[in-house]
């Protein structure tokens, strides 16, 4: 399968297979007015299989989102066809308005203006909990 290289844009690489679409959704790439390629389950020497997202535009990418969904992913910035930076992603300590709390008893279910905040409570098991009700966030 051929996906053209991009000249100026971003490649999110080393995505755990199957998490590409989740990242696409949470990064709101569907709203982006540029070409985006999601390449699923390609062969990888390092990972066996991986997903890749190629964005044909230089846009600010919310690294916290990537760190939350898939901290093993890397973000490559491409300019004039050249790789100019490669960034490994850490898990963010806090996420604001990335995922919504699904607990119907949580105060965020009735107070529409409240930011949905999740905090990293267990880095080993990558567990994030809502700061208001402590419900675990779905990754």
């Amino acid at each position: 399968m051929n996906i053209d290289s991009i000249q100026n844009g971003i490649v999110i690489d080393h995505i755990t297979p199957g998490k590409g679409m989740r990242l696409y959704d949470l990064l709101n790439l569907d709203k982006l007015d540029a070409s985006v390629a999601i390449i699923k389950k390609v062969t990888s020497n390092k990972m066996g299989r991986k997903d890749i997202i190629k964005i044909d535009a230089t846009i600010p990418v919310d690294l916290a989102v990537i760190g939350y969904v898939d901290p093993g992913a890397t973000v490559n910035i491409i300019r004039d066809g050249q790789l100019i930076s490669k960034q490994n992603i850490d898990m963010p300590s806090e996420l604001v308005n990335v995922v919504k709390c699904k607990n119907p008893r949580c105060i965020t279910s009735t107070e529409q203006e409240l930011p949905h905040i999740f905090r990293l409570t267990d880095p080993v098991n990558k567990v994030y909990r809502c700061v208001y009700c402590e419900t675990q966030g779905s990754r």
Binding site: N103, R105, C106, I107, T108, T110, E111, Y132, C133, E134
Partner: peptide, 10 residues
């Protein structure tokens, strides 16, 4: 006291 979880934190 409030019926919603997290209300006091807010």
């Amino acid at each position: 006291r409030h019926p919603k979880e997290g209300a006091a934190l807010v």
